[in-house]
Design a protein around this nucleic acid. Structure first.
Lengths: 258, 258
DNA sequence: CGACAGTTTGATGTGTTTCAATGGCCGTGG
DNA sequence: CCACGGCCATTGAAACACATCAAACTGTCG
């Protein structure tokens, strides 16, 4: 970035909506049937123990663009994402935005050690989450150290991902950024798709730009270059097929430019 | 970054040295007298309990430029930094370097959930550390959940710092980057200096550049601009006096350029 | 004193941003 | 059904901020 600043064009329509709508009654399947339990903090429990967690939890649904919480806000709740994609971001006073990550099903968000959220979170598309009260979580940690152990392990993974992202933001070229992004996303979406090389991007080019520290135009141009080099195909703007993974990997790690 | 790459000029002399030298006998003062205990994971213990941790720990000293561990290496040990500064960094295949953070006394490094270090670590200047075997730590966590709780809290703080750094790397101008860097460092060094506005930079311009995603030249020029604007003074290259903190803060958060 | 490493400053180049315009898709409404 | 408007993605042209290249300067150490 640098140069002149531009206002973030994030869905301003979605701001200032009610923070969430609770639907405690809507819980068709219990935690025991939860398909992604093994990915979440709940994996620290055996199937017959999830009751301990189930009674502390509320289900929450978000529609596209809806805000879950905002940076600096009181961190009263933490969340387990069950379905959908959430963008986590920070803003500068003049509106420049940095997306620090995209949460996918199984991810745990909102834990803070200072009682204030470190970033804002809003739904990229429709999303379903489990909500926990911070105080309940602390009690859970005391009673079941396995849970805290699991959360620490997830925090460590997040930290490693953050360090990878710092390397990307600080030292990679746009070509390397976009290629790395596609490969990382493809790896994270493995569970959702039969074919690892077919991915549906839930987020816009603008989101990708704000995640990679680029402008929309540069992201778009880079996609186009990858397409005309035969490395990816773009049936639609949000549908990417990786047609030459080895070359994509080569480009991602600083190989010969396109 | 972008454009043509340049080799990282990190102290290549320091690579391939023995990873560390153990000096288990040299422990003049026990943990009970440790001046920075309240900053470390050890703060979870009362003074009379530190014996539990003391017997698991080895003291380690590093000389300037010496490597503590390398990315991808077997994460056998974790460390508590007692004295000095450590740079944590990742490299790209062609030598580009991103410093992901500078560890200061009280910081805890090397914990990994996968058994491999996520980054390399080497001493910026002489350093003293306490070393723990990973397996011992796990046992400690089981026996004293307070310790694990403390580590989780520190991991959360690190994560928040990493997110701030992503915002800096992806969306701030060089001027904002350098100003933010000085302010953040000044806040972290508070314990060391009587005057918050006098700081001694332990690291080189090159380190700062690799931390901020810039080149040495840009960092140097930015320091010069801040100096000629009367915002900082530079008695020597590594001695910074913040002479107009309010303006430095304004510049750091996107205020009018210099 | 000379060698060296780090810092600073100057001149030049260029890749990404910025500015601008077009095209595609979709929901809405005449 | 088609026209319209809005949003998003794409593409082109131009500007410029930071990188690159180059050289001078500083302090330190042998």
């Amino acid at each position: 970035m640098g140069y002149e600043r531009r206002e973030a064009t994030g869905d301003s329509t979605s701001l200032h909506l009610p923070l969430y709508k609770t639907e405690p009654a809507l819980r068709p399947n219990g935690c025991a049937q939860c398909e992604i339990r093994h990915l979440t903090i709940c994996s620290a429990f055996e199937s017959n123990q999830v009751g301990h967690i189930e009674q502390l939890m509320n289900r929450r649904e978000l529609s596209e663009g809806q805000s879950l919480f905002e940076e600096e806000g009181d961190a009263q709740y933490a969340y387990n994402l069950i379905e959908g994609t959430i963008r986590l971001y920070k803003l500068l006073p003049d509106g420049r935005r940095q997306i620090t990550g995209f949460a996918l099903p199984g991810d745990f968000l909102g834990l803070s050690s200072h009682g204030h959220y470190a970033y804002s979170a809003e739904a990229v598309s429709g999303a379903v989450l489990c909500r926990f009260k911070g105080a309940d979580l602390q009690r859970l940690f005391r009673n079941f150290p396995m849970i805290e152990h699991r959360v620490l392990s997830m925090a460590n993974d997040e930290l490693a991902a953050a360090q990878d992202q710092m390397l990307l933001l600080g030292r990679k070229t746009p070509m390397e950024k976009v290629s790395s992004f596609l490969l990382t996303l493809s790896a994270r979406l493995v569970r959702n798709t039969r074919n690892h090389d077919e991915l549906t991007l839930p987020m816009t080019r603008n989101d990708i730009a704000d995640f990679l520290g680029l402008t929309v135009e540069t992201v778009s141009r880079t996609f186009s270059k990858l397409r005309s080099a035969g490395i990816i195909a773009l049936p639609t703007p949000d549908h990417v097929r990786i047609s030459d993974r080895p070359r994509l990997m080569a480009v991602a790690s600083g190989g010969p430019a396109i």
